[in-house]
């Protein structure tokens, strides 16, 4: 009896320890990065001396500011385009039967698993070949292509949980397809759409490989700018900007997690 209890307690304790180690492994580097962004020493030496000078320096760094602005602009445009197109596609997949529907749905998944490096390379080749070239517009195109499958899957999951009944109920009550879309379907889909939009934002904002391939000299987004800054020398300034990026991304993803859980309910 007692021994069994002891074994249970031990295994529970071991489980907790394991979980703690995993979280430590995941978050310790980020924590060090954030702390060092607030440390006065350029060479990361201890003892820790609090300063906000790296953040102040950021404000004067034109290149970083321009890159941040580009990042946010591309991410917002991507969110708008990918969410709109993706929602429309999800509606079509959920409500209509058409030729090639299954094939198209299956084709949504491979881009998620294909390494970004390969997608980036192929996009560069394609854009070069078609004359689209490099630049923010090319990055935007790349990001939209990359985030579309995620949007379609997230919105599609929400739609699947709603079913066709509400649409039929609206139609039986005399609502035109447009009235039904605006007054019934979109409001009910809203949590899914918002979650998908946050995801699309995060995909674009955090994207490095594709942005790096499609960035012409002189134009840059935040992850690319950070990368080139590191190559020149690792200043605590990079820690500061990285911390800001992490905070933005984590906020967005936490909101996403919250809303997509929302999406599970009716």
């Amino acid at each position: 009896m007692n021994q069994a209890r002891w074994v249970v307690l031990m295994s529970e304790g071991a489980g907790r320890l394991w979980l703690f180690l995993v979280l430590l492994f995941l978050y310790l580097p980020i924590l060090v990065l954030a702390v060092m962004g607030l440390n006065d020493s350029v060479h990361y030496t201890l003892p820790f001396a609090f300063t906000t000078r790296w953040y102040e320096d950021l404000a004067g760094n034109e290149r970083l500011l321009q890159a941040s602005f580009n990042s946010v602009a591309v991410a917002l445009a991507n969110t708008l385009i990918a969410t709109t197109l993706g929602t429309m596609a999800a509606l079509a997949f959920a409500r209509y039967r058409f030729r090639g529907r299954t094939a198209l749905q299956l084709l949504l998944f491979p881009p998620i698993t294909i390494p970004w490096l390969i997608i980036g390379t192929s996009m560069l080749v394609l854009f070069f070949w078609t004359g689209i070239g490099r630049g923010l517009h090319a990055m935007l195109l790349g990001h939209v292509a990359l985030s579309l499958p995620y949007v379609i899957i997230v919105v599609g999951a929400r739609l699947a949980s709603i079913g066709p009944d509400l649409e039929e109920a609206a139609a039986s009550l005399g609502a035109t397809p447009f009235q039904s879309l605006v007054r019934v379907q979109l409001p009910v889909m809203a949590p899914g759409i918002v979650a998908a939009a946050l995801f699309a934002f995060a995909v674009s904002f955090d994207q490095f490989v594709i942005s790096y391939f499609l960035a012409p000299p002189g134009v840059s987004v935040l992850p690319v700018e950070i990368f080139s800054a590191i190559r020149k020398g690792f200043t605590p300034e990079v820690n500061a900007i990285s911390t800001i990026m992490i905070v933005v991304s984590m906020t967005v993803l936490l909101l996403f997690a919250r809303l997509s859980k929302f999406g599970g309910e009716r």
Binding site: D165, S172, T176
Partner: peptide
């Protein structure tokens, strides 16, 4: 359907979850 002027009660009721009782009925 929307031009037929029919009324239908669905098996699972299909009430609009984001609307109040009043708005559902008024739809």
């Amino acid at each position: 359907s929307f031009r037929r002027n029919i009324g239908m009660v669905f098996q699972n009721y299909a009430l609009f979850p984001h609307m109040s009782v009043f708005d559902n009925v008024a739809f």
